[in-house]
Design a binder for these strands. Structure first.
Lengths: 185, 185
DNA sequence: AATTTCATGTAACCAGTTACATGATTCA
DNA sequence: TGAATCATGTAACTGGTTACATGAAATT
């Protein structure tokens, strides 16, 4: 029985980024500072300890680039074990709970998914679309029940959630079409 | 000079909910379990310590409902100080940083904003719309720059962010129209 | 009589924040 | 030569998680 791996957004981001190409903590920091990936922290106080702990787990390995320097730049790359872990995280089905409680983690998983190939990306998107549509229905039900005892802005905030989730479902549909087209070529 | 108050989503949710009407920790727990507000935690291990700490700060006050019981139900209500704090949090301008780093907190602020009146709600929505549109432009710029060195799914994930933010801006526009209509009546 | 729900709480743990520290290298 | 940037790290703190504990009241 495979152990269920839980991982924080920051750690998954690090894992995914070093999987694309080996890089240092500082490189990662820059990525977080300059791209939308930065939603998953940035501060050295988070990145360096995370690198240490991932290394301790044996998922990444850091090697000094310039041995003569006092504090040489550590370049981290994925180990075989890290590769397996990353794949198993990306392969996990997209559940209702993921969508509600860890949406950012879900999108992050998708951002790295193409290393598993197109079929996996499509599988992910289909699950994502299904769960999003189910969640929209659930939110609409709540809206129906609570309409009365909600303040105007409370109702509008709920409306934002409904429309946002609906948008996500539509995005998934479009993405599926796009990836299917690529497949055929 | 007014001190800049930072508050966690859970604490703001608690403050806003007891502001609507006094209630116990257990009542709050149920709200978190049964409404979309539940995004901001739920576990007793978070709620009860948060209540204690808010009480210690003097923002809420708990009073036992049934003094004869061994562990009487504590009903919390907002103090005058808590009322002032809540208002000052809701009055804060919607900044670019808020939008990027604390989006959930921003929506939560909006959900409770009508206690400040319609003009404040409209002010909030205008700021929200402006910042959202600016962020869309920023993301589009990034998309333009990175198009090449991004994987298909990475690009699609970015696309999700752009479309989601665009959706938020549109939502704000609609909400402004709706609240303006209410105003006139 | 047994189970569920009401109701509050604690303890160990984890991950991230802010702020600070260190020192090398590159650039103006 | 002074400033900015490269590069890595630590310490104190905060706030949340899971899991557990307690016991009354209501329901089946």
């Amino acid at each position: 029985m495979k152990k269920d791996i839980t991982i924080s957004p920051l750690r998954l981001a690090i894992l995914g980024l070093v999987a694309m190409h080996p890089q240092s903590g500082y490189d990662l920091k820059k990525v977080f500072e300059t791209t939308p990936m930065g939603n998953f922290s940035s501060s050295p106080g988070a990145i360096y300890p995370a690198l240490k702990s991932l290394e301790k787990k044996g998922w990444i390995r850091g090697e000094p680039e310039n041995t003569k320097s006092l504090r040489p730049r550590q370049v981290y790359s994925l180990t075989d074990e890290g590769d397996a872990i990353l794949s198993s995280v990306l392969e996990k089905p997209v559940t209702h709970e993921d969508l509600i409680w860890h949406f950012d983690l879900v999108m992050l998983r998708f951002a790295f998914i193409d290393r598993l190939g197109n079929e996996q990306a499509l599988r992910f998107l289909r699950e994502f679309q299904n769960e999003s549509e189910a969640y929209v229905r659930h939110l609409e039900e709540i809206r129906g029940q609570m309409q009365q005892n909600m303040s105007p802005s409370g109702r509008l905030a709920l409306e934002h959630g409904i429309q946002g989730t609906r948008g996500s479902a539509r995005w998934a549909q479009k993405a599926i079409e796009e990836l299917s087209k690529l497949e055929k070529k």
